[in-house]
């Protein structure tokens, strides 16, 4: 069965590329262009991984992460952001994200990290 990934990103080019690349890699991809629609998607569907930007309209990435960690603590989160400041990255990890990828990103590297996060979450569930 295909793993389901929720991509939350407001840049149409990045959304389309991630959707294309991850679908090619064999994942089922759902996209949301802001935090609010991401929350709606989470209520109606279940996901194996979340890939999110930090700068989102309506509900910020940090608020969204808090919401996910509170309500869906087992779903691994990868942050994909332009932020490179150490404090932002540290804050994200303190909130419980599993990985942080800075933009510009290498699509191949991203796929590897997605695979790794999904593998790690599987191990955690088993243990």
């Amino acid at each position: 069965m295909k793993k389901k990934i929720l991509v939350i990103e407001d840049n149409p080019m990045v959304v389309k590329s991630l959707e294309f690349k991850l679908t090619k890699e064999g994942y089922e991809v759902t996209t949301a262009i802001d935090g609010r629609s991401a929350m709606e998607e989470l209520e109606t569907n279940s996901f194996d991984l979340i890939l999110t930007d930090l700068m989102l309209p309506f509900v910020s990435g940090s608020q969204l992460i808090e919401h996910i960690k509170k309500n869906y603590p087992t779903i691994p989160i990868i942050v994909l952001s332009t932020a490179t400041q150490e404090d932002i990255i540290t804050d994200a990890f303190n909130m419980g994200v599993d990985d942080f990828i800075s933009k510009p990103f290498s699509p191949n590297e991203l796929t590897l990290r997605v695979k790794r996060s999904l593998g790690a979450s599987k191990k955690n569930i088993h243990s």
Binding site: M13, V14, K103, P104, F105, S106, P107
Partner: peptide
């Protein structure tokens, strides 16, 4: 313009 958007967001082999 669109190629520039890609270049801004992707790196490496892309």
């Amino acid at each position: 313009d669109q190629i520039l958007v890609f270049a801004e967001n992707l790196k490496g082999e892309s």
